[in-house]
Amino acid sequence: MSHLLREHAPITAAGWDRIDQEARERLTPALAARKLIDFAGPHGWQHSAMNLGRTQRVTKPPAEGLTAVQRLVLPLAELRAPFAVSRAELADADRGAEDIDFAALDAAARALAVGENTSVFHGWKGAGMTGIAQASTHRAIALGEDCERYPLHVAKAVEALLSAGIDGPYGIALGPVAYTRVLETSEHGGYPLLEHLREIAGGPLVWSPGVDGAVVVSLRGGDFLFDSGEDISIGYLAHDADAVQLYLEESFSFRVVTPEAAVPLSP
């Protein structure tokens, strides 16, 4: 049995299938960062740190005549989103009910996806992670509310990346507010703005809950590294007669290798 203790939950195999499937369906569209950066792993629950390949001097070696350095690593952080599932709903799922209430699971999945995206794009100071937008060496371009100017902003971002010698194609992580504006907009002649922006970037436009404004990133690879320990899993906490307490969990770390490979677009 793994540390997730799934076997202790009063949930049938069919019930677990439904829970896992619901989580996958909710998480996959919302995990925007994974669509734009390099994903390494999963390396397992016991994987604890990302190798940075760097050292720091240790000022007092253990004996005379020695020099010493200490390896620097970026520890993985664990994110957990607890939720409850009604045992009556699970019993109905076993009877074949299709409309099971997984509202708490859906909310937990969204919270975890937002947490992961925020860590990657805007950083997670408490866990020592610097976000792509924070690390960028380019001046942020103001996105604003005027959608008709979005192609101009994205073109400027692409030009800034090219000027810095960062090859494409490029992808755009677009926060939910800006994404909705883009979806609703057709330019003169009825051409969808979404398509126009994709053509400028040469890559995908990704709906990114947790992103403030937008970020244009190079997709050439090697610039943004996500190190996964345990990929998103569902574990068991406790249960009573009415509900089972579960949680979504993952361990990961993230670092920016090439700060100039992204341009933030502020809201």
């Binding site: 989580a23 996958r24 994974r34 669509k35 994903f39 890559g203 995908p204 990929d231």
Partner: peptide
């Protein structure tokens, strides 16, 4: 490349979902 789960893992198996450039 896709970051599929380790053998015996009970994860959801989402891994990397890198979008394909158009």
């Amino acid at each position: 490349d896709r970051g599929e789960p380790l053998a015996g893992s009970e994860s959801l198996g989402i891994g990397g979902v890198r979008a394909v450039a158009s």
